[in-house]
Nucleic acid binder design. Sequence first.
DNA 1: AAACTTAGTTTCACATGTTGGAACTAAAAT
DNA 2: ATTTTAGTTCCAACATGTGAAACTAAGTTT
Lengths: 260, 260
Amino acid sequence: MSRDTEDGTVGKALAVLDQVAAFGHPVRFGEILSKSAYPKPTLYRFVQTLTNQGMLSYDPDRQTYAPGVRLVRLAHAAWAQSTLAPVARPYLDALSADVGETVHLAQLDNAQVLYLDKRNAVQPVQMYSQAGKVGPAYCTGVGKVMLAFTPEPQLDRIIAQQSFHAFTPETLTTPDALMEELDNIVARGYGFDREEHEPGIICIAVPILTEKGRPLGGLSVTSTTARQSLDKLEKLAPMLQQTARDIAYDAAHWHIKDED
Amino acid sequence: MSRDTEDGTVGKALAVLDQVAAFGHPVRFGEILSKSAYPKPTLYRFVQTLTNQGMLSYDPDRQTYAPGVRLVRLAHAAWAQSTLAPVARPYLDALSADVGETVHLAQLDNAQVLYLDKRNAVQPVQMYSQAGKVGPAYCTGVGKVMLAFTPEPQLDRIIAQQSFHAFTPETLTTPDALMEELDNIVARGYGFDREEHEPGIICIAVPILTEKGRPLGGLSVTSTTARQSLDKLEKLAPMLQQTARDIAYDAAHWHIKDED
DNA sequence: AAACTTAGTTTCACATGTTGGAACTAAAAT
DNA sequence: ATTTTAGTTCCAACATGTGAAACTAAGTTT
């Protein structure tokens, strides 16, 4: 259904856009060129086109390119119309107030985890800095619960794209180890992050599933080993599962419009 | 420099993306078709391509398309790398704490005002619901101050694209009236929204200018006629101007990277 | 249940837009 | 003044996008 293969000029242009975004800072044409497979004039035309379109912005003083503001406008629409994000918002508020720990709402984007929303107990919400962030699927709580409920054909494709980089000593670094973990998650109905991505950071996560059992997204409560234990987090499982069911129900029956 | 003319296949595809986003809710193929100038198969291919690329997401149950999550990821990069938004954040926090009214950071996107960030005195920050929102340039405080400092050739193009719709009795509805207002703003160094966009809503706005006087963005403090008067808001002008200068300075000298 | 309507998808000859080697210009570096 | 590097334009060869027409699937009417 979804191709990683670039289709057509549009796909190539968007791949260039991703490239630029991946740098994480404004870049000069030459820098993009050095990381790109395209010949100079071809890449140049892509960059021009994207710039004309407002998908890239060009700083004439520094002669650098960065992802353009048009994306911010489009993303607002994407967020507001996404099945999950607007519906889940009040539930995140409630959860956050209840548990007093960091709460995440995420979704699979290709083979990565994409964070759609966040509540942090300590400081007030700072969404843009977090929503839109991506992380690995194979070593985060939300990532694994979503994978666990992803059917075979897709799952294989996604697993093939994981880096299996060992962020910590606890990281699962082989497809086999991950598959076993996914089986456990399905059996249990929820999953953990046991310091697999960052030392000292643990989490419990539940999937948000459609009626047909397809994973829409994931919900997690994150804490530190200093403050919580996995056992204590596990006590939240029933409540999280109920919240996930509520969100799934609302997502299936509502549809919110973009408003002030 | 920037074209509204569609260049190539990429431009056309992105125009389709805008179309879909403009609906404000998930749409079926036929709905897009009815608003599009393209013949059925052509549009169909665009929609397919965009869907494959993750720029549109397709809901198989409802058979609807909506802007895709890939945009959220890209927008995160755009926001984090934008010259203004990350730099301005702490200043907005401070301003908001100081004045206790709604504070906006905006930028020009094509001929529209695009809100990049917001602080609301009442409830904690809810950025995604606001950042990315667009508004008219000719009848908002931030819009007018940015236009006021936009040089002739561009300004004409932008003004030609304004609708001059009369949102309220106070709305400036002719290019001439707007030009006169812009002159006043340049002379004064700041501008107002005198209930021109929404009845009862007033604001004071200042431009954020580069060393060369090019407008990077705008900063505004919004209130209601019930709580504030224009005279009282005007007292904030010096402080806002100083903040704008500070932001401009930081924007020119810093460059922040994407971090946690 | 057959006939009709509407929404979505596939096909294919044609032409338009994309490609990239080569050649050019602008600006630094030597 | 000369060389090097970065950015830009040209254009012939060719790959890709185009859209009328034809088709399938689903829903509606008689």
